[in-house]
Design a protein around this nucleic acid. Structure first.
Lengths: 229, 229
DNA sequence: TGTGATTGTCATCGACGCGTAACATTGATG
DNA sequence: CATCAATGTTACGCGTCGATGACAATCACA
């Protein structure tokens, strides 16, 4: 699940540097030197996120951002603006244009990567409020509560942690050992079969809302949390 | 109704960026580069909320938070911690110092604004008159009185402060330590178990109005004040 | 200074959740 | 279809945590 990032930046050296950093971070880098090239690239292959230089020859970055927000195809794509110091204060209609974040030059690639990840995380349902929602289930982290629809689900500590782990790591199989490491913590030793029992208990607490089939058994491997039955 | 936000952060560029985003969002931004400047700024003009960098030259953010919690003037001001590479340690310590929320760097300005609004909203059924209302309970801050419907509720000082904190911070779990910090103040040392007793007393005073189930136990974690049973 | 209210601490009791074993069921493999 | 392995299900004992009531110290106010 490599993320595709489109870099729109006229200076080749900067573009290459960013592309290199992205690839090292396990992302796919697409490149464009101006607004026209960017739009073509997007049509050809829709990226997961766009890095947009503020200053571009011809159509400015801000203008391009506005345009992308109007197109159906590109409306939902998160945009991170790259601005030089000083440019921030005057022309920062960027936020109004629907830019998700902006990074001030010069930046470290490390910081840039971190920002990208933060924005991607947020565009995937994590709005930073500590709320996680998936398939009719909602977990309110700060409140330490679980809701099915708007009904509160009574749940014990361990089942809560287990469910929390599952809902933040859905659609993937985890072995009993992995679940023990993540949910119980590596320092304690308990039988692997104990996981089975807690899976059972979790299913039972979800049963009244017919959500117990989100917890799925993968025979010979472990368990998976998934939306689809 | 512009909210005043104090930014305590030593890095000028970050501070400026945040300040700009805040103004854009219709808030007034005050700035301070270290703990000393922060305290002076607070005395001069009390902010509605404080953004506090974890790492500060001289007095650390954590230490400053503790100090602010002890001062009468700043006890009630919500604090949002800005932490780099937020590890578990940071979170725990920060929350124990009576911090209201924390945001991990790097964050997008949009995320930060969202958090600020959330915290302000939470600590603000308060419309300025000092009246707070929630789920059939009403607190008259200036008068130091509590009403259930229109009946006055007889309540002692500590239970009053506990209830006041709860009603201004509903739908969220607080550990005993956190409650001690927020309600008792960081300067006194009392046993954690004492919280249990006052929870009990608070429940007993609310019982005649069947509101005692708003005070909820979260086993292994702490207590929560909530509308829904 | 006296009296009632308030507060913090402690000991005790009970409830709850947890881990484990024992047994039942299902699935795979030949 | 026989057999073994993997998982589902249930019951039980133990330990931990929270609830509760009692008590002594302190505070506020007459």
């Amino acid at each position: 699940m490599h993320k595709r990032i489109l870099i729109v930046e006229d200076e080749t050296s900067i573009r290459e540097m960013i592309a290199f950093a992205l690839r090292k971070a396990g992302m796919d880098a697409m490149q464009a030197a101006d607004a026209r090239a960017a739009q073509l690239a997007i049509v050809e292959q829709v990226p997961d996120l766009i890095l947009l230089d503020w200053m571009l020859p011809g159509t400015s970055g801000l203008e391009l951002a506005r345009r992308l927000r109007k197109e159906e195809l590109s409306r939902e794509i998160p945009i991170i603006m790259l601005t030089a110091r000083g440019e921030e204060m005057d022309r920062v209609n960027g936020l109004e244009a629907g830019v998700d974040d902006y990074v001030v030059k010069p930046f470290s690639t490390r910081e840039l990567i971190a920002r990208i990840k933060a924005v991607l995380r947020r565009s995937q349902g994590d709005d930073g409020s500590g709320m996680v929602e998936l398939g009719g289930l909602r977990i309110d982290g700060p409140a330490h509560r679980v809701f099915a629809g708007d009904e509160a689900v009574p749940i014990g500590p361990t089942e809560y942690r287990l469910l929390y782990f599952f809902i933040t790591h859905p659609e993937r199989v985890y072995s009993r050992t992995q679940l023990l490491d993540h949910v119980w913590g590596g320092s304690v030793y308990v039988e692997e079969r104990t996981v089975d029992v807690h899976i059972r208990r979790l299913r039972k607490t979800l049963e009244p809302w017919k959500l117990d089939d989100m917890v799925q058994t993968v025979r010979g491997t472990g368990y998976r949390f998934s939306i689809s039955a």
